[in-house]
Write a protein that binds this DNA or RNA. Sequence first.
DNA 1: TTGTAAGCGTTATCAG
DNA 2: CTGATAACGCTTACAA
Lengths: 348, 348
Amino acid sequence: MKENGKVTIYDISKKLNISAATVSRALNNNPKISKKTRDLVFAAAKEMNYKQNRLAQALKSGKSKNVGIIVPYINRNFFSSIIRGIEEELGPHGYHVIICQTHEQMETEVEQINTLLNTQVDGIFMSISKSTTKTDHFKKVLDEGKSLIFFDRKLDVPGVSSVVIDDFKAGYLATEHLISQGCKNIAHFAGDLNLEIYKNRYEGYIKALKDHGFQPNPDYVVTTLSSVESGAAAVSKIWELNEKPDAIFSASDYTALGAIQELKRIGIRIPEDFCISGFSNEPFTKYMEMPITSVDQTPLRMGKIAAQVFLEQVDSPQKLTIEKKVVLAPELMVRNSSDRSLHKLAIH
Amino acid sequence: MKENGKVTIYDISKKLNISAATVSRALNNNPKISKKTRDLVFAAAKEMNYKQNRLAQALKSGKSKNVGIIVPYINRNFFSSIIRGIEEELGPHGYHVIICQTHEQMETEVEQINTLLNTQVDGIFMSISKSTTKTDHFKKVLDEGKSLIFFDRKLDVPGVSSVVIDDFKAGYLATEHLISQGCKNIAHFAGDLNLEIYKNRYEGYIKALKDHGFQPNPDYVVTTLSSVESGAAAVSKIWELNEKPDAIFSASDYTALGAIQELKRIGIRIPEDFCISGFSNEPFTKYMEMPITSVDQTPLRMGKIAAQVFLEQVDSPQKLTIEKKVVLAPELMVRNSSDRSLHKLAIH
DNA sequence: TTGTAAGCGTTATCAG
DNA sequence: CTGATAACGCTTACAA
């Protein structure tokens, strides 16, 4: 029957003694085809194990029904959850998702964008790398008439849509929460302040302090890498101060964890003496013996919404002019590391 | 200059007054092209911002330079790490990876395979869903002359290559380790024994017991879901036995965590009174206050090796006959939850 | 060394 | 309602 899985509409047309065009129309449920031939075609297609060649379709139509997703690393919970959200939203619409990693290198990012464009994706979703400063490669995507959507980490580029969480609000909420627990000297473990997300978290922290009558203390702000070791080191650093903090709002769950470990090591009781909040709601935060308060960025939702923004754009005729900025509300997950309500009696 | 990013070799050929064929050859560094025209073509291509259309290339050559990866869920650390491994190995060879999820449904798995074949991927990597029993859809892939590679969860299908870890050995190692810590009554929290991986872990556990002179006790084997709650429930169950166990080899890190929480709740000291080992080396296991012993499945390496197997096959002319079975060695990560060496003095 | 022309599998246009 | 034909952008015999 089939020689090597290469059945085309042409084969069907020969078998039925009709033209390939008719077969194509029948397969696409073109209304001008008689029910009779349509049934005939479907039957033959099934029998001959025919499969549409999406490559040919794509070449003809100019739409590949593929989208690209570029992230620093695939195997970070936050990113893989976003990818999952995009896939689940776009899959039912017939799209496939192609995944690329930048390893935080701008150079790689540029390259990935180029190969994705070569491959004729219909759009690109991405979180920019930490080292990205230029924006030429983003403009190229728009020049080709494809939509570009940033999620989480973005840069302001005209014409580019974005879906992010309100990092400012997240920083504000977390800090306010610590204040509500009675903390007076709140430190902040910040990420790279050149990245918008970290800067916003920092500014939310500052604003919350001021709004509640606290004077921000620059000594209390430590820039850290997102790692356990970095968190422990940062605690050592602030512990040298005369007036020691009694809380930390950390922009990373990993540094928060490192901080907790170090604080315990030097005999500080949490949350009685010291409260702490992380950021990202990494899976491990809720599994700890002392679950860590953290900000949930709702990555699954973020992915789904990014996908919806994309769908709106491809369906729209004047797509290039659309530029949608979605800002999602973060969710503070209060857990033992900062929840004194359970310890109130013990304190006094 | 460029109207809408649609520059083709034809545009270049017109501009240079040469044929499109020559342009194509020049771009592909065909040696029969004079250096002069080659340089001219490259210069013009760059100036006109020409981009190869990989779709057209793919249609012509029959190779899309895309591969599909099908997993139950993208945002599981184990799977996303494998995907990362595949991407990093295949990227430099010009391949893109397309990702699909099955949500553990065989029906979805069949569908995903079909759409991937429609889209002309050059090969498919996958971990089968829990509910998969049939193998027709796998045969279809082979019938189309594409290579199919299973990783971790597999079924035996002639012609399909696979990369897995030695789950039997992993079960054996973990159990033997618990025995070496002095445990006498070792329970096993098993996964669905219809899946090869869980059956092998179970059998490794049984074999280790026997090899060390212990009589396996069916009451000590509890089938669990991979969840924290399920782990706690399983502990309650074995705690009803007259002769209570003094160790657990759990086929999942989540059940191991649930077990630890429940054991602590009822006042059991770990590892002094009770040792426990999980499976998968989930990130949280090492971050716990009491880090959990676990089996590392080296997913990154697994992905890279799966990719290498694929590359060998596409390069080979007789690809269909090749069937490679790779079995990787697991790594037992011994941590506090089962390490009595630090507590020896305290015990006696 | 370069040009001509056919073809990869579809779909759209134009006839009939 | 159906057929012929061109075209999407590229590669590759076959010629020149």
